[in-house]
Design a protein around this nucleic acid. Structure first.
Lengths: 338, 338
DNA sequence: CTGAAAGCGCTTACAG
DNA sequence: CTGAAAGCGCTTACAG
C-alpha cells in the first residue's frame, strides 16, 4: 500500500516526471493529448501531490500562517473562530497553504516569532487575538515578513491592520442612546490594554462630549470582556449612580452580564435600563428578545486579513489600515427613556 | 536575508549536518560538548528546522489532520472550535504536526478523502462536524488510515468514535424533568440524519417509557439545530398541545428558540414551561438567569480524539468507542411543576 | 512539446 | 561520537 508518487504516474503515462509536474501545474507547454492522459491516470490512481514536497521543491508555493493566542480555546464570542474560517477561505481562494499556530501551546513555548515563521516556511502571516503585551507582538512588528493584524495597531513595511471603525461604531451606538432621550450613559469597557477598548472608549467619549453630557470618570468600567466581571461592575455602577438609564457595553458577553446585574437589582431591561452590546454574537438575536448591538463580521475580517497578506506577498500595495463595515443593530434591549 | 538552514549551523559549529540533525532530535550519540555548541548556535542564529523538509526527509514525523465540514464557519455553539483546540493541543503534546482541512472549500471541492490525506501526508485524522450523508464519510470508513470521528458511528480497523453517552445524558435530563413532576414532556430534536439526534431521542424515549408517560408522535419535533426552526416548531407544539409543561431540547441554541416561542405565547419559563438544553454553550450560564442543560466538553472531546489517533498510529489498541463524561446542569429554566 | 539533472532542507542507515 | 552519501517527492532552469 505504498503511496503513489509522481514517478508512478509518470511511468504509467510513459512520460517524464517533469512533464507530469508541468501538466498538473497548468503549464501551457504540454500537449493536450499528453495532459489528458496524465489527468486520467492521476484520477485513476488517486494521485495527490505531496504538499510538503511541493512547498520544499518550489519557491512559488506560498503558505500563510494564522497565529492565535493561547486564549483561543475560550473563544466565547466566536470571533477568533470566525477569523480563522475567513483566513482559511482566503488561502484556498488564492491557492495558498494554510497553517494554524497557537502560541504557548506547550511545545512551542520557547520559540520566537521568527522561528515559528521559518519552521513553517511562512510567506506571510495573520495574527489575531493577541494582546499588546504579548512578546510576539513586538517581534512581529520588527520582523520583515508580511503580517496582517486583526484589531491591533501596526507600524512598518509589510504590516497592516484589519479592523472595523471602532470609534465611529461606538459613537453611533451612544448617539442612538442619546437620541432615545438617555442622558446618563455609562460605558462597560473591555480591557485597558486592548486597542479596541481604547477606541471604543474614544467613540463613547466623543458622543458624550458632542452632546454636552456629564461623564464622571467612574461611569467607565472595565469588565475584561468577562461576563462575571461585567456583572459585578454593573452592580456597583448602578448602586453608586442610580441616575444611569443606559449602558454601552464593549462586547455582547459583557452586555449579558450587565443585563444579569440589572435584573439582580430588580430592574428591567429596557424599561429601566437600556443596554447595547458589541459584536452581534450568534445568540444575540435570540436572547432577551434580541440584544441591541454593533455588528461586526469576524469571518469577513479574517478573509480580508488573509487577502491582504496575500497581496503583500505578491508585492502589491495594501492600505496600512483596512477598515471593514460595521452596523448598529437595534433590537429589544434599548428603548426610549421612560 | 536568506533563511538559515541546517548547513549554516553545521558550518558555524564546525561539524556535519548529520551531527546537527542528531543533536537537535535528541539522539544520545552526540557528545555533550558538541551538542551544547550546536544548541548555542541554533539559539544565536534563530535557526528553526523547516517542517516541510523534516516531514519529507523522515518517516518518523507524524502529522494529524482535522477535517471539518464546510459548515464550520457557522459554529454557533462553539463545538467545532472547541474540538479543534483540543486536537491541536493533543498534537502539540505528542509532538505531531497539525493540519486543518475544511471540506468543499472552493479549491478542494473535487478531491477525494484519500487524496486529501495523501496531499498532506497524514498519518491519521480526526473528523468532526460531518453529516452522515457527506460523501467523505463513506470514503473515510473505507480508508485504512487511522481516524477518530466525533459523534458518529464508525466501523472497521483503525477507526474509533469519540463522543459522550448521549442516550444516558438525555435520559438523565428527562428523568430530572419527571422528578420535578412533569408528565407532558416534549422533545425538540436536532436533525433526523444526525447520529446524536437519534441517540438523544432514544434517551428521551427511554425515560418516558420507564415512567409510563404518554408520548404522542407529534411530541417530538425536529429543529435542525436552528434557533428559528426551533422557535416555529415550539410555537406549533404548544398550540396543539397545551398540556405540555416541559421541553427537552437537543441543543442550547434550540432551547433559546424554544424559550422565545414560550414568551411569544405569553407564557413564562420556567413557571409555565420548563426548558432544558444540551451542550452548555458559553453563554448558557448567563442568559435567562441560566439555562438548564447537559454539559459536554468540546475541547476534551477533541483532545481525546487527537490522542486516540496518535495511539492508533503508534499501533496501540484504542477503544472503538471512547465515551467522555457529561453532566446535567440545573439552572433556572426548569422548576417543579406548579 | 519533452526529458535529464540539480536542488529544496532535512533524516537516516552505514561506515568508521 | 562523527561524517559522507543516498533519499524523501516534488519543481525548475536548461538543453534539445
Amino acid at each position: 500500500m505504498k503511496k503513489v508518487n509522481i514517478r508512478d504516474v509518470a511511468k504509467e503515462a510513459g512520460v517524464s516526471i517533469t512533464t507530469v509536474s508541468r501538466a498538473l501545474n497548468g503549464y501551457s507547454d504540454v500537449s493536450a493529448k499528453t495532459r489528458a492522459k496524465i489527468l486520467e491516470i492521476v484520477e485513476r490512481l488517486e494521485y495527490a501531490p505531496d504538499a510538503n514536497a511541493r512547498a520544499l521543491g518550489s519557491k512559488e508555493t506560498i503558505t500563510i500562517g494564522l497565529l492565535l493566542s493561547d486564549l483561543a480555546s475560550t473563544d466565547e464570542n466566536g470571533f477568533v473562530h470566525g477569523n480563522m474560517c475567513g483566513v482559511y477561505e482566503a488561502c484556498s481562494e488564492y491557492d495558498c497553504e494554510f497553517v494554524l499556530m497557537i502560541t504557548e501551546s506547550e511545545h512551542q513555548k520557547m520559540k520566537s516569532f521568527r522561528q515559528l515563521c521559518k519552521r513553517n516556511n511562512l510567506s506571510g502571516i495573520v495574527v489575531t487575538g493577541l494582546r499588546t503585551n504579548d512578546p510576539f507582538y513586538e517581534e512581529m512588528l520588527k520582523s520583515d515578513i508580511p503580517c496582517a493584524v486583526v484589531d491591533m495597531e501596526t507600524t512598518g513595511k509589510m504590516k497592516c491592520t484589519v479592523t472595523i471603525d471602532n470609534i465611529a461604531a461606538s459613537q453611533e451606538a451612544v448617539n442612538y442612546l442619546i437620541s432615545q432621550g438617555h442622558r446618563h450613559i455609562a460605558m462597560l469597557n473591555g480591557s485597558k490594554v486592548a486597542d479596541v477598548s481604547i477606541r471604543r472608549y474614544a467613540g463613547y467619549k466623543g458622543a458624550m462630549i458632542d452632546h454636552d453630557l456629564l461623564m464622571p470618570n467612574d461611569y467607565v468600567r472595565y469588565g475584561d470582556f468577562s461576563e462575571v466581571k461585567a456583572y459585578n461592575e454593573v452592580l456597583d455602577l448602578l448602586n453608586k449612580y442610580p441616575e444611569i438609564t443606559a449602558i454601552f457595553c464593549a462586547s455582547d458577553v459583557m452586555a449579558l452580564g450587565a443585563i444579569r446585574a440589572v435584573h439582580k437589582m430588580g430592574k428591567e431591561v429596557p424599561t429601566d435600563i437600556s443596554i447595547i452590546g458589541f459584536d452581534d454574537i450568534p445568540v444575540a438575536k435570540y436572547v432577551y428578545r434580541g440584544l441591541s448591538t454593533v455588528r461586526q463580521n469576524p469571518n469577513e475580517i479574517g478573509y480580508a486579513a488573509g487577502k491582504a497578506v496575500y497581496q503583500m506577498i505578491q508585492g502589491h500595495q495594501v492600505d496600512h489600515k483596512i477598515v471593514l463595515p460595521h452596523e448598529l443593530i437595534i433590537r429589544e434591549t434599548t428603548s426610549l427613556i421612560k
